[in-house]
């Protein structure tokens, strides 16, 4: 029984589901929906997750977005974050300005790198994240400008590139989910091409296809993304009392 069909709540639950089964690792979210997803997962079905305040501390309590009433259970300055990434004990949910069918992602620049049409962040930690720890994505506006045939700068690596890399990389590489305002996607196909996993309530498979710039793997039966239970909704509201999540998918 769904307690909410609000799009942001559906996205938060889908983000939380990406962390199911992860156990005692660092669940890291870049952005409001991603952060709420990790914190919801930890507050419900994945209690062993470690969750940070987005600065330099692990917090043990259910910290609301922007909250300062922290129960600090550990110190993770950037150097230790990098160590945790390279040690593989982390699952990060990032954003992406472009992503392709194998999960190659771009946050660096649009247009040629030499002189970009739009300089974005730079590759940041995307190369190291994707090759070292689980990396998922949340994309607030699913369009064919984001879901493209070929990204302009491969910041985070995808399955086609990994297929040509070392055995270690092939064995360890994992992009669990891509969550958008329309649907949930994964790479659980024989050749790791992007697959439609579920559509959000009110969204059709055709809506997703029409807004994706490449051919997705579409199973014969596509379920509807689940909404939050009453308990989950109340936790989401505790974690985000000001409803900042709604601004991300407006």
């Amino acid at each position: 029984m769904t307690a909410s069909t609000n799009l942001a709540d559906i996205c938060v639950v889908a983000a939380a589901e990406a962390f199911r089964g992860n156990g005692e690792i660092f669940g890291s979210g870049m952005g409001t929906i991603q952060t709420l997803g990790v914190r919801l997962a930890r507050a419900t079905f994945e209690p062993d997750l470690l969750v940070s305040d987005g600065e330099a501390f692990f917090v043990a309590n259910n910290l609301p977005i922007g909250g300062s009433d922290k129960v600090i259970e550990g110190w993770v300055p950037f150097r230790q974050v990098f160590d945790t990434v390279w040690g593989g004990r982390r699952h990060v949910m990032m954003g992406a300005s472009q992503i392709d069918r194998y999960g190659n992602s771009n946050i660096a620049n649009i247009g040629p790198w030499k002189q970009p049409k739009a300089q974005l962040l730079g590759v940041r930690g995307a190369p190291g994240n994707t090759i070292n720890n689980k990396t998922s994505f949340f994309i607030p506006k699913h369009t064919s400008k984001v879901f493209v045939e070929k990204v302009d700068m491969v910041s985070g690596i995808g399955y086609d590139r990994v297929a040509k890399m070392s055995k270690w990389t092939r064995d360890n590489f994992c992009l669990p989910r891509v969550i958008t305002n329309l649907c949930v996607l994964d790479f659980e196909t024989p050749d790791n091409r992007m697959r439609l996993r579920s559509v959000h309530p009110g969204v059709t498979v055709d809506d997703v296809i029409a807004n994706t710039g490449f051919e997705l793997v579409i199973p014969s039966d596509v379920p509807v993304s689940r909404g939050p239970s009453a308990d989950e909704l109340s936790i989401i509201e505790t974690l985000d009392p000001r409803g900042l999540r709604n601004k991300e998918v407006a």
Binding site: W86, V123, P127, G128, T130, I131, V154, I157
Partner: peptide, 12 residues
């Protein structure tokens, strides 16, 4: 390191 391998960091 492995960080950077396979990405366009090695291309640019």
């Amino acid at each position: 390191t492995r960080a950077g391998l396979g990405s366009d960091v090695t291309v640019v």
